[in-house]
Structure formats: structure tokens, C-alpha cells
Computed example of a mutant assay.
Amino acid sequence: MAIQLLRGTLSLLKWGLCAVGALALALTALIATPLQRPPELRSVSDSVKGIDFTRQVALEQFQARDGTWLGYRHYQPKGPATGRGAIFIHGSSGSSGTINFVLTAELAAHGVETWALDMRGHGASGTRGDIGYVGQLEDDLVDFVAHVRKSAPDLPLTLIGHSAGAGFSLRVAATPIVQDLFVRTVLLAPYLGYDAPTNRPHSGGWANADVPRFIGLAALRKLGIDCCAQLPALAFAVPVNSEAILTPVYSDRLMRNFATRGYRLDFAATTRPITIFGGTDDEMMISENYAAAVQAIKPDIDVKLIEGINHMGIVTNPKAVNAIAEDVATRGSGQS
């Protein structure tokens, strides 16, 4: 009897080890799958044509809690100040120095004191394409607001994000420790996640995720193993040899942090007013689906569509930037 029991135990152990080995091989194969960069998306590359960069202000820096210097640009209000401020979060691959400065300069022209931040992993902030841990971007934003408050202690601040930066801004709006730093959130052509009805496949050709690697790393985290998050997991359709300006690839942890936790979860957790602006000609997002998708969760979310505007036009086209700047300049001072 004892011998049979021992044989049974050894057999179970053998098959258990085989299963563990098979799982390890499967996860290794998933994680080892190489990331494929998509071809250049011309609608994004061509958006720089005709842009007047003379309105862009100089880059400044502040020090985050871990000692890293992060970049930003500060646009003083032009003409009569509105008594309102804004912090702008750029989209995927970009920075405060890319063409979204057309909007931040226009906000200042409307009397809104505006700060545009290079999110860690972009521009002049930290290691390009990577961060230290998921949640570091929220920590950086808290540190940046503290820096802003040294010169503007009482200015009501609106958080504005574009595309992936809008997804992150929604994440912030749903985070108790951060959401109260802002009186209002404005989302421009927001990327709400792969499962949102507002997202075109692969963001219209802009982004390509390493899905097998993402699944493998997610499975490891479920098993309590948090490793390899520095591996590249998301690539963008930027021009060849544009790395000096743009961030072509995100690590797994940057990809997960610079996004919502899930748009349904995040919208449900928001407590301050939110406005969404979309363009009817957006090649990355299905703008006509924004209202139904978000108002099913929060009916009071304001959704505005601008005719004839594509994804980058929402931050560069004169019609769009004027409408957004007018909105920010006249709202967000305690009222919705």
C-alpha cells in the first residue's frame, strides 16, 4: 500500500512538473514574440506641415520625487488673464515640443495660463519609452502640480489631454489622490482603450501592440510574478529616424500606465466635470460613438464634435483650437 501511494505521488509530481514546464515554455514563447513597428502614418506625419513654431516657448525642467528632471513648457496668458489655468498632457509618442503646442499657445492667447508637460518616457523627461513602475506617471503629475503651485497657489486648474494623453487624463480624473487637484477635465479625441467602441482597429494604423507579449506578462502578474515590464510592447507609426523628436516604442509598463484602467471603470469613478471634444474626420477614433459610450456611464458628460477635423487637427486646426481654448477660458472656475 505504501509503495502504491508513493508511486501515485511521484506520478502526480511528474505530471505536475511537466505542466509547470509546459506553462513556462508557453509563457516564454509569448514574451519572446518580437514587436513589429507599423509603417509611417502619413496623416500624422503631414500634420506638421505649415505649423508656425515661433509661438513655442522654451523648455523648462523640475525635479520629481525620485530626483529625475522632467521637462515642461509654461505659456503665460496673453492679454487679459481669465483667472484660469490648464495643464496639458500630450498624446502617444509626443511631447510638449511637438505640434500640440498650437493649442497650448492658443490657450494662453485666450488668457489661460498653461503648462505643457513632457510625460516621463517622452521628450526631455526620463528614459525615452520607459518608466520605473505603473503609477509613476500619476506621482509625477502630483509633483508637477506642487511645482506649479509655487507660482500659482490658488489658480483653478483644468486638466487637458489629447489621444492617449486623454486616456491618462481620464485615469487621473478617476484617481482620488489626484482628481481633486483639478476642477475639470477636458479630453481631446481620447483613446479609451482597445475594447472601447470609439477605437478603430490598431488606432487606424497608428499603433501596433505586441499582443502575445502583453498576454504573457499579464499571465505572469496573475501568478504573482512581476517581471520583464521594461520590454517593448507598443510601437507607433512614426517616420523613420524621428527618434530625436518622437518616442517610437513603449515598454509594457509605460503602455499600461499611459492609459485608462478601463473606460467604464474610470468614468464611473470620476467626480468632477468632464468634456470630450472629437473631430468628425478622426482617422484613429470613431468620434460619433463617444456620446453613447460615455453617457451610458455618466449622462452628464459633455460631448462636442467639430466638423471636418481629424485626429491631429483637434490640437492644430484653427477652428478646433479656438473652440477648445474658448471653452477652457470660460469654464473651469468652480462651475461646470
Rank of each mutant, 00 (worst) to 15 (best):
M1T: 08
Q4D: 08
T9I: 15
G16S: 14
A19Y: 02
I31F: 05
T33I: 03
Q36G: 06
Q36V: 14
L41H: 02
R42A: 13
S45T: 15
D52G: 09
V57L: 11
Q63W: 02
G67K: 11
T68D: 14
Y75A: 12
P77T: 14
P77F: 07
K78Y: 07
K78W: 09
K78Q: 15
A81W: 06
I87L: 15
G97D: 14
G97F: 10
V102A: 13
A105P: 03
V112N: 05
G121K: 05
S125Y: 00
T127W: 01
I131E: 03
Y133H: 13
L137H: 00
E138H: 08
V142Q: 07
F144D: 01
V145W: 08
R149P: 03
K150G: 00
K150A: 06
K150I: 04
S151Y: 10
I160V: 13
A164P: 00
A164Y: 12
G167V: 03
G167N: 07
F168Y: 12
R171T: 03
V172R: 04
I177E: 13
V178F: 08
Q179T: 14
T185K: 02
V186D: 07
Y194V: 12
P197C: 12
R200K: 15
S203I: 10
G205T: 08
A209D: 15
F214H: 08
I215D: 06
K222H: 10
K222A: 14
L223K: 09
D226S: 13
C228G: 05
C228F: 12
L231R: 13
A233W: 05
A235S: 14
F236N: 05
V240P: 02
L246G: 04
T247K: 06
P248R: 10
Y250F: 15
D252G: 00
R261C: 04
I274P: 06
T275Q: 00
I276A: 01
G278F: 02
D281H: 13
D281R: 10
E283G: 01
I286K: 05
Y290T: 00
Y290Q: 01
V294W: 06
Q295F: 05
K298L: 01
E307S: 11
M312R: 07
G313L: 10
I314Y: 04
V315T: 09
K319W: 00
A323P: 00
S336P: 04
S336E: 11
